[in-house]
């Protein structure tokens, strides 16, 4: 295994991760909810009047993050190399897959593992596995 030391950013990764943990902690301890984006967004498509406000508020906060960041510092490098067509197809796959799987990297990967939920541990292993396999096929077998 070759490690890309030049792009390895352990401190910002840990600090960013800790902030994600703090956000999830605030959300469960104050709002009583799991900070899982799939569930928060999915619930808006099955709207219950009382739930719309807090779901939208969380998503607005998330979407506003780059804007707030920009008030203090330039945004770090963001590279999306995929074509628009591929993004549209994968967006569909991610939308359907996360709803059937009841969660994504936030709900299962962060909150679920923190709750020591066997379901979330299985889900996280599953999407990590296909994520790694997909990248392997695309980069090393198909040679794109």
């Amino acid at each position: 295994m070759l490690i890309d030391w030049n792009n390895f950013t352990p401190w910002t990764a840990l600090a960013g991760g800790a902030l994600i943990g703090v956000a999830s902690a605030l959300f469960i301890l104050f709002n009583g909810r799991i900070a899982g984006i799939t569930g928060i967004l999915g619930g808006l498509l099955r709207p219950k009047f009382r739930d719309i406000g807090w779901r939208l508020a969380f998503i607005i906060g998330l979407t506003a993050a780059p804007f707030v960041w920009l008030q203090f510092a330039p945004l770090p490098d963001i590279q999306i190399e995929s074509s628009n067509t591929l993004l549209a197809i994968t967006g569909l796959i991610v939308g359907i897959g996360t709803r059937y799987g009841s969660g994504c990297t936030s709900g299962h990967g962060v909150c679920g593992i923190s709750r020591l939920s066997p379901r979330s541990i299985v889900a996280t292993l599953a999407f990590m596995a296909t994520g790694v396999i997909t990248v392997y096929i695309v980069r090393h077998l198909a040679g794109v």
């Binding site: 984006i37 796959i93 991610v94 359907i96 897959g97 799987g101 299985v122 599953a126 994520g131 997909t134």
Partner: peptide, 25 residues
């Protein structure tokens, strides 16, 4: 449902490197 859904999500994630929360960012 849990396993197949998650496996499917991972394929999409591996194709473009975007999962739901960063998508909103």
């Amino acid at each position: 449902r849990l396993v197949l859904g998650s496996l499917g999500f991972g394929i999409g994630w591996g194709l473009v490197g975007i999962c739901p929360a960063p998508a909103f960012v």
